[in-house]
Computed example of a mutant assay.
Amino acid sequence: MLSALHAHGGFASARDLHEALEAGGTAIGLSTVYRTLHALDRSGQVDVIRERTGERRYCPRPPDGHRHYLVCRACGLSRVVEAETVERWAENVAETAGFAEVEHTVELTGICVRCHVTPAA
């Protein structure tokens, strides 16, 4: 499944991956794709974003940890964003509250330049 995610490039839904695997000759059930992606998420091997519809999209997580992304709500284009400030903030909040092994999710969405339509003057 990870190789299919790498081949897809960017974020992919379970349905996207299912279609790609089937097109490549791999007979696999959609429920198996969902279960495998869920297991990859639990084990920290993928980054996950949620669309407005609630659908999850996945991409392989780099070996050095999770990333934060800015995602276009119109076309799905994603860009990695520098988030050191967010990481420090999360660590400080956890330490102040006396928590350990804190995880966080930050989702940034917008409309990319290609999809943004400016009103006519």
Rank of each mutant, 00 (worst) to 15 (best):
L17T: 06
R35V: 02
R67A: 06
T53E: 12
R52Y: 07
L21T: 10
G25A: 09
H104Y: 15
V93G: 02
R114A: 11
A97C: 15
T118D: 05
C115I: 11
T36N: 08
E91T: 14
A83P: 08
T105M: 13
G54K: 03
E19R: 15
S13Y: 01
Y34T: 11
Y34M: 13
S13H: 00
V86L: 14
C112I: 07
V117H: 13
C112M: 09
G25R: 02
D47M: 01
T53S: 15
G98D: 13
V93A: 09
H38W: 08
E95N: 10
L108F: 15
F99P: 00
R50D: 12
G44C: 10
E19V: 14
A20D: 15
Y69M: 00
V102P: 03
R56H: 12
C112Y: 03
V113T: 15
L2K: 09
A97I: 10
C72E: 02
T109R: 01
T85A: 14
R52T: 01
R88Q: 15
R15P: 00
H6S: 08
G54M: 02
E87Q: 15
A97M: 15
E91D: 14
C112V: 10
A14D: 07
D41E: 13
E55V: 09
T96K: 13
T85E: 15
A83E: 15
V33E: 05
A12M: 10
G24T: 12
G76Q: 01
R50P: 02
A121K: 05
R52K: 10
V93M: 03
A83Q: 13
E107W: 00
H104T: 12
D41H: 12
G10W: 00
G10Y: 00
R73P: 02
L70F: 05
A4W: 10
V48A: 06
L2S: 09
T36W: 00
V106P: 13
H116E: 10
